Simulated scan of single mutants.
Amino acid sequence: MQIKVLGTGCANCKTTLKLIEEAAAAKGVAVELEKVEDLPSIMGYGVMSTPGVVVDGKVVHAGGIPSKAAIDGWLAGAMTTPAAAAASAGGCCSGGKCGG
């Protein structure tokens, strides 16, 4: 999972980065965390209010420190991969009988 924290280096941006690091470590989720401070790059995501958070290429938050619940939700998405969902549902098709 790739997470980018967008911001020019303010305290809220640093806090957001730290909260995500701590939550990922607590949940045992491997994340590739990147801090983006370049203003044109930030604006390229359409984020006009920082900190912004981008998860796997999608802007999921902008403006203010995200809540712990929001961060946990983003990380939960990393723990629910298509392969894991298929395995918990009994594989790619019901009863292991593929109709193809």
Rank of each mutant, 00 (worst) to 15 (best):
L75S: 08
L33H: 02
C92M: 15
G100T: 08
A30W: 04
V60Q: 12
A25R: 09
G57Y: 04
A76Q: 12
S94W: 00
T15W: 11
G73Y: 09
G64S: 13
T15I: 15
C98S: 05
E32N: 08
A25M: 07
M48Y: 03
I42N: 04
I71S: 13
H61M: 12
A69E: 15
E22K: 13
K68C: 14
I65D: 13
C13T: 14
V31C: 02
G52M: 00
G73T: 10
S88V: 12
D56A: 10
A62T: 14
S94F: 02
L17C: 14
A69Y: 13
V53R: 01
G90W: 00
G90Y: 01
A26E: 09
K58C: 12
A86G: 06
E32D: 09
C98M: 04
L39H: 07
G96W: 00
P40V: 06
E37I: 08
V55I: 06
M79W: 10
E21S: 13
T80F: 14
A70K: 15
E37A: 11
G9D: 06
T8N: 03
K4N: 02
C98E: 02
V47N: 03
V53H: 00
G7N: 03
L33N: 03
T50V: 02
L19T: 09
A84M: 12
E37Q: 09
T16N: 09
P51T: 01
P82H: 05
A69S: 15
V54K: 00
G57V: 06
V47Y: 03
A70N: 14
I20F: 09
K4V: 00
S41D: 11
P51I: 00
T8H: 04
A25F: 04
S49M: 06
V5I: 04
A26D: 07
V53F: 01
G44M: 06
D38E: 12
C10M: 07
N12P: 12
K14Y: 11
K14P: 08
G73P: 08
L39N: 09
A30K: 08
K14F: 12
E21F: 09
L75F: 09
E34P: 02
S94A: 10
G77D: 11
G90N: 01
A89Y: 03
